[in-house]
């Protein structure tokens, strides 16, 4: 029971981290901080614009793989990995 609770707590922590990153790159970089970020350029594009158009989506895809990796590690730690 304690093991299950710990697994779930760590799972929630990972989800929470993912949601914070999701919010920061989409809302934060793409909208709230778009003007200061536009002072910098990435590949010829203003950075704030780039985050709104592409950067946030790349980050979301990256988050999928990061979450999977961390969850697989968590499964191993709690001996519940898929056979």
């Amino acid at each position: 029971m304690e093991n299950t609770k710990s697994y779930w707590q760590e799972n929630l922590r990972l989800i929470f981290i993912c949601l914070i990153i999701w919010f920061v790159v989409s809302f934060g970089f793409g909208l709230l901080l778009v003007e200061p970020l536009n002072e910098f350029r990435l590949g010829g594009y203003k950075l704030g614009f780039w985050f709104a158009q592409q950067g946030s989506i790349y980050t979301f895809v990256g988050l999928i793989f990061w979450y999977t990796k961390k969850m697989n590690e968590l499964d191993k730690k709690h001996n519940v990995e898929e056979s």
Binding site: W22, S26, V61, L63, I64, T68, N72
Partner: peptide, 18 residues
Amino acid sequence: NKHTKIAIFVAPFLLLGG
């Protein structure tokens, strides 16, 4: 595995929500 499936399933909803 199941985590990849869940993440790929949830991601579009977060994208739309965003």
